[in-house]
């Protein structure tokens, strides 16, 4: 029990003293999840909108596929992305393996089904009178798209936060694709895995606290926005 309490105490000292190694992992995490969230929202929201808005043959099976991909294991994504980015793989020349961009690619694949599925649900649950109202007011398809997204903003926010939560806490992709390289691709989660292996609980706990704080901040802002929404 003692060493756990000691770990927490040391963790606070580490954080307060601005331990550069700890913060390097925090910055890497923020950077890579920012990148992957940006990409997955940019790709996922329009796709999710189309999936929720349009009626086409094969829509139901497609939704089932997307919903299945929600539970895609991170190690599997890591494996596939690794294989594609490896120097023997089809994209080996890009030299993206063991880089933050490489991790971001994997995390984008992880977040995309979440964003697409939840966006589609949000768009589907929009009032069915919305479209007629917008058309009757003379809105073009692009304006219908933008207004519908704004009307579904709460649902989109939930999609973004849920996806961020997954991206922030995953370790499989970061470890396999990123390689956990110190000062470069070491993120909070891979650092925790490593520190535990080394028996360095303090650093692990410190990083865990940062992760908790990030998740907490995101959830608080979400409930704040929801109340305002």
């Amino acid at each position: 029990m003692d060493f756990i309490l000691q770990g927490v105490a040391q963790a606070i000292v580490l954080l307060a003293s601005g331990d550069w190694e700890t913060y390097s992992a925090v910055f890497a995490t923020v950077q890579v999840s920012g990148l992957s969230m940006g990409a997955s929202l940019l790709i996922g929201i329009p796709l999710g909108y189309l999936l929720g808005y349009l009626d086409f043959p094969g829509k139901k099976p497609l939704r089932t596929v997307v919903d299945t991909l929600l539970s895609l294991p991170t190690v599997f994504i890591g494996l596939v992305v690794y294989a594609f980015l490896s120097y023997r793989g089809p994209f080996g020349e890009l030299s993206l393996l063991f880089t933050l961009t490489g991790i971001a690619i994997g995390q984008t694949i992880l977040a995309l089904p979440v964003v697409i599925s939840l966006t589609a649900t949000a768009v589907e649950s929009l009032d069915r009178h919305l479209r007629l109202t917008l058309v009757s007011l003379g809105a073009s398809p692009r304006q219908i798209f933008l207004t519908s997204l704004w009307e579904a903003r709460l649902g989109l926010l939930i999609a973004a936060v849920t996806a961020t939560g997954r991206v922030l806490t995953e370790v499989g992709i970061s470890m396999m694709v990123g390689g956990n390289i110190k000062w470069q691709t070491r993120t909070i989660t891979t650092a925790i895995a490593l520190e535990t292996n080394k028996g360095q609980f303090a650093t692990g706990i410190a990083l865990g606290l940062v992760l908790l704080a990030l998740a907490f901040a995101i959830n608080v802002s979400l409930s704040f926005l929801r109340r305002r929404g």
């Binding site: 120097y87 393996l97 063991f98 956990n180 390289i181 000062w183 470069q184 650092a191």
Partner: peptide
């Protein structure tokens, strides 16, 4: 430590060898 050519994998031996192979 912080040199860009010096990669600290933080992983087991086999992953480290694989990483060296990937990076030449």
């Amino acid at each position: 430590d912080k040199e860009s050519w010096y990669l600290q994998a933080g992983q087991g031996m086999m992953p480290t060898i694989t990483m060296a192979a990937e990076r030449g």
